[in-house]
Amino acid sequence: MAELIRGTEVVADDWTWVRLPESQEPVRKSAGKVVLFKLTGEKAASDDVISACDIPAGKVLLPLSVWLRRRDELATRADDGEIGVWLDSHEEPAELAESLGGNLNRLPLIGVNFPKFIDGRGYSIAFILRTRFGYRNELRALGDVLRDQMFFFHRCGFDAYLLRADQKAERCIGALKDFTAPYQTSTDGQPPVFRRRAAPGADA
């Protein structure tokens, strides 16, 4: 069973993570806003798959594509705080922000999927959600969430981690503290080491 860590505690997961079946259609993704060209041929869900997607009752964590296409029917549930949205590693945080009138904090939960742990795009997505879009609620790492990346997840702004089924929660919590004083800043608000070195009382 995949365990959920929130902060530094193992907690029961009251959200249902909704995923679409694997699709075969490659997306032509833009390299930012500038030029369109095919970069990685990520797969996208078709309209049929999106409308056929079963959305259970209770708190649900939905794929971005389902949220974007079906948000009218979900409006009341969203207002009740029952809707979270997750991004895949190739998806754009800006699209989600746009769908919420720029206010991501209307969502109680955003997830970011790591299809493989070596796919590091999710770290930048987390950074962007926390900084550019000022998102403050739960940010959850999904997918290939492993002990050896916990420290990086946390620094980039994640505060919840849905572990891969084979991971031991207590070891993962320990790994959040692999390093005591990282050199550089990130969304975790730690000043870079050089600002601490300069602080009064610090070692020269």
């Binding site: 742990f117 070596i118 796919d119 590091g120 770290y123 930048s124 950074f127 990346q149 420290f151 990086f152 620094r155 980039c156 390093f179 990282p182 050199y183 550089q184 990130s186 870079p192 080491v193 050089f194």
Partner: peptide, 16 residues
């Protein structure tokens, strides 16, 4: 040296 520190265990760029 400044960049060595910046780049060492940079949390966002460990899996480029």
């Amino acid at each position: 040296e400044v960049l060595r520190q910046w780049s060492t265990f940079h949390p966002e760029f460990a899996f480029l």
